[in-house]
């Protein structure tokens, strides 16, 4: 018996919305088929027993930079102005965007 595919046309519309990408009607059938093929391939992961893996333990091993030097703007050698200059529409030092409300 053929199983229901994971992705159908409705899923594509939903994912388009979530990812903020316009997907044309012409693009949809191929995208749907490709996603199902890829998901069918990666689905083999679900058959693997990982019950003895503790991901929290693994995450704790990742060292963190305690002094958070990288977050301190004073340590930046480059000018914020260079970044701000790259905004194509700006008001003073702010990026100007269309109204949200």
């Amino acid at each position: 018996m053929e199983k229901e595919p994971l992705v159908n046309k409705k899923t594509i519309d939903y994912l388009s919305e979530l990812s903020r990408i316009k997907i044309t009607e012409a693009e949809k059938p191929k995208l749907e088929a490709d996603l199902n093929a890829i998901l069918n391939y990666v689905k083999q992961l679900q058959e693997i027993d990982t019950s003895f893996i503790n991901l929290d333990e693994e995450l704790l091993k990742i060292k963190t930079n305690k002094d958070l030097e990288y977050l301190n703007e004073k340590n930046f050698d480059f000018e914020n102005d260079d970044l701000i200059d790259s905004f194509y529409q700006r008001k003073d030092k702010w990026l100007e965007i269309p109204p949200i409300f």
Binding site: V7, T11, I12, L15, S16, L18, S19, R20, I21, K22, I23, T24, E27, L31, D34, L35, I38, L39, I97, P98, P99, I100
Partner: peptide, 28 residues
């Protein structure tokens, strides 16, 4: 258009199909 229109239209037109495929797959 609206902020949302700009997102949709820009990303829809200027991302190529492989990029769209991977973003949508990642979103899924």
């Amino acid at each position: 258009g609206s902020l949302k229109d700009i997102y949709f239209e820009t990303r829809g037109e200027y991302f190529g199909s492989e990029v769209k495929r991977r973003i949508v797959l990642g979103t899924f």
